[in-house]
Write a protein that binds this DNA or RNA. Sequence first.
DNA 1: TTGACAAATGACACCGGTGTCATTATAATA
DNA 2: TATTATAATGACACCGGTGTCATTTGTCAA
Lengths: 329, 329
Amino acid sequence: MMKKPTTLQDIADYCNLSKGMVGKVIRNPEQCKASARTRQLVAEAVQKLDYRPNFAAKALTTRRTYCVGILFPAVNSFYYELGIKLDVALARHGYTSLFAYWDVSRNPLQAYQEVFERIRLRNVDAVVTCQHEPFLIGKGIPVIIYGNEYQDVDCVFPNKKDFGVRAVQYLVKKGHRDIGCSGHFPDIRYQAIREEMKRQDLEINEEWFIGGSSYSHGGYEAMQRILSCRHRPTAMIMHSDHMASGALLAAHEHGCRVPDDISILSYDNLNESQYTIPPLTTFDQDFPQGAELIAQVLLNRMDNPESPFRKYSFKMPLIERLSVKDLTS
Amino acid sequence: MMKKPTTLQDIADYCNLSKGMVGKVIRNPEQCKASARTRQLVAEAVQKLDYRPNFAAKALTTRRTYCVGILFPAVNSFYYELGIKLDVALARHGYTSLFAYWDVSRNPLQAYQEVFERIRLRNVDAVVTCQHEPFLIGKGIPVIIYGNEYQDVDCVFPNKKDFGVRAVQYLVKKGHRDIGCSGHFPDIRYQAIREEMKRQDLEINEEWFIGGSSYSHGGYEAMQRILSCRHRPTAMIMHSDHMASGALLAAHEHGCRVPDDISILSYDNLNESQYTIPPLTTFDQDFPQGAELIAQVLLNRMDNPESPFRKYSFKMPLIERLSVKDLTS
DNA sequence: TTGACAAATGACACCGGTGTCATTATAATA
DNA sequence: TATTATAATGACACCGGTGTCATTTGTCAA
């Protein structure tokens, strides 16, 4: 059934032109040194015969697939949301996303590498991922890292130091002096928060700095630890919205109210964070902007394969909702 | 820099064989009527020269890209989670996913069609999506719909009637007789719930059946309506976990406690639903299973392009958490 | 040793584009 | 009108595989 798709040759026959000529006209109708009549003719034929170029053939000659591999761990909606935004941004620039999420339940590193190899086989023009590993480099394929800062690759990341500083300043402005923090340590945010706290002359209680998983259950466990302290902080800075949602649940189970008994300030601004109880006050990763930045870096890398690696950081706007209490009023 | 990738010809030169021969050996080392020595030789060369086949070239001749388009609306983590699971399932069968999420904020239908055309240009072998539209058919490309039932395409969907029946039965078992429901009507679930309620001799209060958006804000608004009723139901069946999370927030804002003042039974079992307050009692869509089913349908369709359309439905296990109160105890 | 037959390999056209260079048509100039 | 510059178009090899068919090599029986 499925009739054979129209090719350049079909158009050429229809127009009494050569295949090559038709190709040129279709690729660049503007300045392709073809007569107006020819352009018109080809345009009609394209319409009439429903011509659509064969991507495989094009990729074969141009050595460009216009596909970008998107590699993230299959852990939670953070990476899902990011991936979607990335897809949208890349689509705007003519790229299609090849997604590949790796399973983290058993040997994540190996799963990551397998996924990378799988995508590499598809001859993608570049890869966007979030975690730098040795197997990524030297494979002749541009890599862009989102979310973290490294030396030997292009990267795009939120300014974590700025986050740390502003998070503390915001809490202080709201009258908080007993501040804790939880995330996956070591981390720039962790450092920045401590430094800013010192600068603000706040006492640092080591009990309130809890390292662990950056997923929901990590936040859940961290909050349990906090709630078991004889002296509790008035505010916690969580390194992700998922952690915050876990913390929220732990607090709720202990009859501890947020933000009345303890405030939570977070990081990400996921879609769902406007529907937590209470809705989260959080720094917005602004995925659309980050995604667009990645697209820019990508295009730049394609055009200048030998240019030095670039780093882009962006500041996160604070979204004030209801999880932080104003102690001064 | 980036050295030219190894081709079949390179292997052939290295082994003193012809390109065609090498191709055959690589494609099918087992029964390719090549001498053991040749196979050995080629295998070594592949290793040594790090040969990886060129997908574009292969696609050009075989007319198979082994790519599947995944088309979903960019609305919330429901489709993100589903997409990821789909990718994992398809990858197991050698397919790579081309994701394309369409923007629903302005003219969703047009955005949907654009995204479809964009993916179609990539010569995908098939498309998986969730919403049937006329522009999908007759384009010579297999389409599989997830989540809803249609006649003229392959589809895979949870058994919504079964959900409706069991949801009511479960609530009745827990002592609930005043039951409402909210979702995007009309819907099989809506029908099934009403019928089962009649069968159970429950009174149907039209005020408690609220149609609207199936996203979070839809649930939020529905719950606001419910809370404004002079006589409230003891339990609401929400058509999605996102709706449920919106409903949870609305209830919280009104000082109405879940499940003590009102129970919520839901549909999806998203990752995040174990961290809502309270964690949701919900029917599990079991994405991994659904995704695997889709992969099966897809493979079947590829092998038998002319076979009649298939429908697969599956039952959803109930995940009991804390959002439904047992009134009998 | 020759012939017959199967096993192993090679030659080559093709898939649908791209890009270079040669060729032809058209217009401008001498 | 012949000459030349320039605008349009055509011819063709190539990208890296696949698949068909022809050819060579090896094995064994006559």
